[in-house]
Amino acid sequence: MNNNDIELNQQLGKTVGNPLVDGIPRMSCQSVDVFYNQDLQAIFNVSVDLAKNQILAMIGPSGCGKSTLLRCLNRMNDTIDGCIVTGKIYLDNEDIYTSNIDPVLLRAKVGMVFQKPNPFPKSIYDNVAYGPRLHGLMTNNSELDDIVEESLTKAGLWKETKDRLNKPGTGLSGGQQQRLCIARTIAVKPEVILMDEPTSALDPIATATIEELMYELKSSYTIAVVTHSMQQAARISDRCAYFHLGRLVEVNDTNIVFTNPEHGLTENYITGRFG
């Protein structure tokens, strides 16, 4: 380890700010480490809470581990060979990495929206109905129709698509596709929604629509969003976490992070000195 690294480690050290929230958090990470193939550590000792009905924005330069942490929250990392997660991650006071927690059930509770819109090559209706059908969330077809309508409405897509529910979801525009993916996630009635740079593949107008949607959704869901855009983080999030080289450097209420950051690295990043 050369001097630079030591300096960096000292600099990164312990998370500053306010990782814990008042009351009972919806989700909580405690001392999480993530390794790929044993020798490559992607996340170092991260602890952070997700409060109910709030949006937590995760920001930081590329490769800082924010997406990795996000994927740990609904155990999507299980699908990657050689990925090991240590530490504890709680959902409503239950450790999601213990053996009696089922990843399928967990993912029904913690939904995820991806960077690139990924509708299935099926009709719009079938895309939204996919989750409820999987989990048997309805007893008959009219109930399913209701779930589809409700989810599409919540995702702000109902008006545009109600006449073309049988058309393929892949035929929609990029922003519509992403809202379809959000509707698809909502249809399972999750408690937490994870979003991995949901607007990075979209144009500014579609981005604005999605941002509005996220703002509306937070009344019913807990949301964690990874974003590259600091403006977006500032606009939509209640709390903001800054990651650097796999460490959580600083986490606090968004307005504090952006107006009065405690850590020098955070300040450098939000003022645009690197990133």
Partner: peptide, 27 residues
């Protein structure tokens, strides 16, 4: 078939075989 399809289905809580039969094979 792109991995995004697999991820999308897994994130909705599908088991592997459900992903295979309901998303990958149709695609």
């Amino acid at each position: 078939v792109p991995d995004a399809m697999r991820d999308g289905s897994t994130a909705l809580g599908a088991t592997k075989s459900e992903t295979v039969w309901k998303v990958i094979v149709p695609a």
